[in-house]
């Protein structure tokens, strides 16, 4: 593989990243080849490893950056999880190990996902049921005002609980996705380092 091909493949593998990140990485490795000298191109490629390995390390690092900041959000955490899964899939590890890792990651992501989904649905259904109950209460107001009051009261309580539970939901989502992303990053580091030791 020539240096041009190598950098081209690397660029393709990084295409999920913002342009600025792609260019910075390509510039770095372009300079790296220059510094090593033209005659050492093959050796540099051998030492760097495949473009897949190089790109997966960049993707994984990109994913977890900023997770410790105050400004980190649930959305950032979730996208970090996604990026690391992409990185793991892109990393050139042996198939049996890859399958194992994919199953493990899948199980854990599914577990966290279903927990969050349950929480979310509970929230939404409380709010919705509350609204329905309030509407029903108003519907019978001319027939039996006591029943009406009862339904409106229940409805307000249910929607109130639903709304109150919303901030904790966001917080829990953020924490779970952040720790999930960090755990995946550690797993990723372990896999790629193990691979290096084996060489």
């Amino acid at each position: 593989m020539s240096r041009e091909e190598y950098l081209k493949v690397l660029r393709q593998k990084l295409n999920k990243l913002p342009n600025e990140e792609i260019n910075a990485a390509i510039d770095f490795y372009n300079e790296y080849f220059d510094e090593a000298g033209e005659e050492n191109t093959a050796e540099v490629i051998a030492k760097l490893g495949s473009p897949a390995l190089v790109s997966s390390q960049i993707l994984a690092e990109y994913a977890v950056k900023g997770l410790d900041n105050e400004s980190s959000t649930a959305k950032k955490g979730l996208s970090a999880v996604w990026f690391i899964i992409l990185a793991i899939l892109a990393s050139p590890i042996a198939l049996p190990l890859l399958l194992l890792v994919v199953c493990l990651v899948f199980a854990v992501v599914l577990l966290c996902g279903s927990f969050l989904l349950t929480f979310f649905l509970l929230n939404v259904s409380l709010a919705l049921a509350g609204i329905v109950s309030i509407v029903a209460g108003f519907a019978v107001i001319t027939q039996h005002w006591q029943t009406s009051l009862f339904f409106i009261g229940i409805g307000l309580t249910a929607s109130g609980i639903g709304i109150l539970l919303f901030p904790p939901l966001v917080l829990v989502t953020k924490n779970i996705s952040n720790s999930l992303a960090k755990w995946l990053k550690r797993l990723f580091d372990k896999i790629t380092r193990r691979r290096k030791e084996g060489m």
Binding site: E21, A24, A25, F28, Y29, V44, K47, L48, G49, L53, V54, Q57, I58, A60, E61, Y62, K65, G66, T192, K196
Partner: peptide, 15 residues
């Protein structure tokens, strides 16, 4: 460390 380990680290420290 492998030679490709350092770039992501530098980028993170820079960011």
């Amino acid at each position: 460390i492998s030679e490709s380990t350092l770039y992501p680290v530098l980028r993170r420290l820079q960011k």
